[in-house]
Design a protein around this nucleic acid. Structure first.
Lengths: 177, 177
DNA sequence: CGAGCGCTTGATTGAGTTCAAAAATCGTGG
DNA sequence: CCACGATTTTTGAACTCAATCAAGCGCTCG
């Protein structure tokens, strides 16, 4: 029987340069990326050509295009490196290897997926009910220190506001203190 | 070995009156609801006292508070019936019963969770990148005919706009045709 | 060391909100 | 089944938050 954490342990670390693209919209992908060091991000380009950061993945986060993974279809998201990074590339368990996983691992996957659903749920509720300022302070909690590592325009994009907007929110927060 | 679909098959149908509350913020919940007929909804009340619809669940949808289910903690969401409904209440598999599930069922759960993640992902991207009008037309696709069944103010809430805003979007769409 | 990118700041615009009030629809009791 | 009060939807007018446009400053990295 195969075991998830043993897969992770035995996977080789790959070194990625800042700016390197790991997945482009339209690609087929059967892998997800486990970040050991550095930081990746996933994003889409909308029909007006605008970039929207969907997720950041600093140390110990996992990132992938669920759509592509699931359906074996073309990826919606793009994934690239924001910093020089070290990652482990995990091939999606195929029908075969998935069935080959032990029950322990399946349960573990279930838990992780539920956690993910949870965080997505929180983000939606936030987008529905919080102002730009509230979302930014929430971001600071979710990703500690990341604000210092990532360009502000990407954070703005993640929050659903413009870089100028974020600049003003930050100014306002400083003023309040 | 226990099997998911057999659980579903053997669960009794419960009849719910329109307006009935199945879960309130703060409750402990270890169940999810499978809608056989009618329509449920989940929503939160934000710190300004405003309602935000998180999800609709017409026929064949499943609805629950993931947060509470997962952590065994107090629910964030409220769930109630928008129409007279018939539902099946499924107790969350405990450690024990979960381990008792057969591998087939675990795989099935995995697939369902991935599908859910997928749809949440789409909603986030939409909230980040689409106008009120675009979000409404997307809603019409996601929930066919539901626009005729649920009050507009709830749809507005789901879209993250005011009832007045939605009324104007609809007017505009009619004009365009 | 210069060109370009990222951040800030100001001025203007615009999508969507708020407030108010009328019109339409719903639901309940007689 | 009707009637009447309550709720929902629509419409109008004023307003607001954040977007866009534009310009200037400061770094960095090539």
């Amino acid at each position: 029987m195969i075991n998830l954490s043993s897969i992770l342990k035995n996977t080789a670390i790959k070194k990625i340069k800042k700016g390197e693209i790991l997945l482009s919209n339209g690609d087929l992908s059967d892998s997800f990326f486990h970040v050991v060091k550095g930081c990746l991000r996933s994003y889409i380009i909308d029909n007006k050509g605008k970039e929207h950061v969907f997720q950041f993945a600093p140390e110990d986060w996992i990132i992938s295009d669920q759509e592509s993974m699931m359906n074996n279809g073309p990826a919606i998201l793009n994934i690239d490196a924001i910093e020089d990074s070290q990652i482990k590339i995990i091939k999606r368990p195929s029908e075969k290897t998935l069935t080959g996983l032990d029950k322990e691992s399946l349960l573990e996957m279930n838990t992780k997926l539920l956690r993910r659903i949870n965080s997505l749920q929180k983000r939606i509720i936030q987008l529905l009910s919080s102002s730009a300022e509230e979302r930014y302070t929430e971001f600071l909690k979710t990703y500690p220190n990341l604000a210092q590592r990532v360009p502000q325009k990407m954070i703005a994009s993640y929050l659903g506001i413009t870089p100028e907007g974020l600049s003003r929110v930050r100014k306002e927060l400083v003023r309040k203190k």
